[in-house]
Write a protein that binds this DNA or RNA. Structure first.
Lengths: 111, 111
DNA sequence: GCCGCTATTCAGCGTTACTATGTACCAGTA
DNA sequence: TACTGGTACATAGTAACGCTGAATAGCGGC
């Protein structure tokens, strides 16, 4: 559902995940569950795992394998210094975009 | 510049253009210039034209060819009823996303 | 043994924005 | 006439991202 939202998520989903990891370390399955909880009901699991691989390869996160009592070992991700820097850039871009959109929305008589 | 912002624009740029057209009719060249004015300094012209073709094919806009005194004829786009509906859906999705991001940003100690 | 939950991975696809280039119309000027 | 520059639109090829769908694997309980 929501092809519009899917397209909007491009670029921002990465920021969302980094923001989550800025608060605390987490692993893929956990992040997916949390997102669903927050209303992102149809974010595919595969999407999150692919995203995590990406940010790991770019060096934004540190990874630790932790055994789980209920299944295969978890890959726990935590944001490092480089990731924090990148996240701040994300917030700057987001603020810029949100401000423009806000102006446009206010000036839109059709609402 | 700004690969991050480029990715973020996916999905939102369409909404931005529709929002502009909700205020008044406009043509491609004009929209591009306006966006550059608003700080979207590196949005390519080709991007806007491709986007306009897309929303025309989806039936969100009506098109009128208007002769120009300074060059080839302009294609003036105006938002129709279907486009207005789609724009409202866009605003709903945007509001949802913006609210989640806002929460995340506030809870982010690294800022 | 089999089902269900936890947990990760991957190939293939569609959509979007960018790059780069080309076309065309007109005015001014040398 | 030829050239330049601003206006205006179009398009082929590329990269990035999220989704679909399926596979793999560990563990507990019926």
């Amino acid at each position: 559902m929501g092809k519009q939202l899917t397209e909007m998520l491009k670029g921002t989903l990465e920021g969302i995940v980094l923001a989550i990891l800025a608060g605390r370390s987490a692993y893929g399955y956990e992040i997916t569950a949390w997102l669903r909880d927050q209303g992102f009901s149809d974010i595919a699991e595969g999407t999150i795992y692919a995203l995590l691989v990406r940010i790991e390869q770019r060096g934004f996160v540190d990874v630790e394998k932790v055994p789980s009592e209920k299944g295969p070992p978890r890959k726990v991700y935590s944001l490092n210094a480089q990731g924090r820097e990148y996240l701040q850039e994300f917030w700057r871009n987001w603020a810029f975009l949100a401000e423009r959109l806000d102006h446009l929305h206010k000036g839109d008589r059709s609402t």
